[in-house]
Design a protein around this nucleic acid. Structure first.
Lengths: 260, 260
DNA sequence: CTTTGGGACACTGTATACAAAACCTCACAG
DNA sequence: CTGTGAGGTTTTGTATACAGTGTCCCAAAG
């Protein structure tokens, strides 16, 4: 229910803006901590402020944006700790999803899983990396749908998008392991083996966690004292945070062109 | 992060409206499936449409409201199936929360849990039923906070509110069992016994599920053939759904006074 | 009596306008 | 040189206005 539009009968500006902002956050075009000025976004996307404001509320509820009243909205910051925390939640949720998917499997749901897997395989072979990431998320989401639990799905969609964000922000790639793990999870689900499905889903997420952690370690293998800082930022490019004492109200003058 | 206002430094109308609408939904003042007409709500609460609209987006992301573009927003409907589904998710999430709370317990977090328990005990003894429900939710939420996982908490807040909604809509009360189960969960957490804490949290939710199911059965112990209807409504009062073929656009004339 | 078409109404989607708060700059005093 | 306060600008919060779409009612034809 990502865009709150069920039938997608009519595509509203707010839904398009929400999707676009989310895309830019996931892709890193909008960096962590970056200020989201309503006027600027509205002008940038060619709409008025209202759709932008409503989008920001949705993204805040999903955890991609942080809103402070009277101050403004910023792209959320991902600390290493928060990145790691997500994996605990994923193991619980996706383990449940896999178990239920195995329990309630139908020919239709199994088909859909297989189709996503095949699309992902194609994308891997053709080297379309962005699509691989999207299809990875799509597979996990398809497991959630196969579980046939509407509230579970309501939670999983933003959770998986956040997971994708964590990975893209870490430059942590998951190589070919991910593929075979997906395949084996699919097989357990298709076989209706609940315990095995849950175990494989949990193992898969645990493996993803290891990839994440090693990517983080690799990133800053500076002398790293056992980090005293309560929240170590998880950033792809050098943060660029100049003086700016608050959430970062941008420079007043030019107001655009963040990197000369 | 329920109201997206972290420090609550400034209380915006949108936050107040969100809280008020959520309260009315949980209390049943706004019934399942009831139309949420922006103009009417705005007039009712003495604000303009904008805060109302933004609130509706937030409540939709939390799953309390369903939005169909160009048609309008309605209070979500809770089928018995959806009510039951929630318990599966809760067992996974709250089991994890209890485990983490036990692992990361501190004197401070244990204190807070105990304080909530004592407040709840008082409320029970004084027969303040609404407060009991709120404090019940507060205890579960406090376990989540003790777990020290920010994303887990982001999910738990709406989840627990939804759980409270399910119970209030079912007239399913949990009696004194709930209290002792909370106490025993607290003890496992305070003792730092992860396995036991998780087990007790899961058992507690499972017990809640049984209360829910028996309340549902009790409610309509009509001859109930093994319900063929895909979604059996979960409603407190008789649904009142007259003809109205769509989400229920109210009578055009008087425009208020839903129940003559 | 049922069905179909037109017109009126209600509501949402979007844009614009105004008020208030917060921030930044800069000057001035210590 | 550093702290502090006033003024102006930016930006959010809220309200109002307008356009388009969907729905309902009712009349007229079959």
């Amino acid at each position: 229910m990502t865009d709150q539009t069920l039938g997608a009968a009519h595509r509203t500006l707010r839904d398009e803006v929400t999707a676009e902002l989310r895309r830019r956050i996931l892709s890193g075009e909008l960096a962590q901590g970056e200020r989201l000025v309503e006027d600027r976004l509205a002008a940038l996307l060619g709409v008025s402020r209202n759709p932008v404001r409503e989008s920001i509320r949705v993204l805040a509820a999903e955890g991609f944006v942080q809103v402070v009243p009277r101050i403004g909205a910023t792209v959320a910051r991902l600390s290493v700790e928060e990145g790691e925390e997500l994996f605990d939640v994923r193991m619980a949720i996706e383990g449940l999803a896999a178990r239920l998917a195995a329990r309630k499997r139908t020919p239709g749901s199994a088909d859909r899983l297989r189709r996503v897997l095949e699309s992902a395989k194609e994308a891997v072979e053709q080297g379309r990396l962005d699509d691989v990431a999207d299809l990875n998320t799509a597979f996990h989401l398809a497991v959630g749908e196969a579980a046939g639990n509407s509230y579970l799905n309501l939670m999983m969609t933003p959770m998986l998008q956040r997971a994708q964000w964590v990975f893209s922000q870490t430059a942590a790639a998951r190589g070919p392991h991910s593929w075979s793990e997906h395949l084996s999870l699919y097989e357990a689900i298709a076989a209706g083996d609940e315990d095995e499905a849950q175990a494989r889903a949990v193992a898969h997420v645990a493996a993803a966690r290891r990839s994440f952690l090693s990517a983080v370690d690799r990133a800053h293998d500076q002398p790293h004292e056992p980090h005293d800082q309560p929240h170590e930022p998880l950033d792809p490019a050098g943060e660029a945070s100049g003086p700016a004492r608050h959430p970062a109200r941008g420079p007043v003058g030019p107001a655009h062109d963040p990197a000369p």
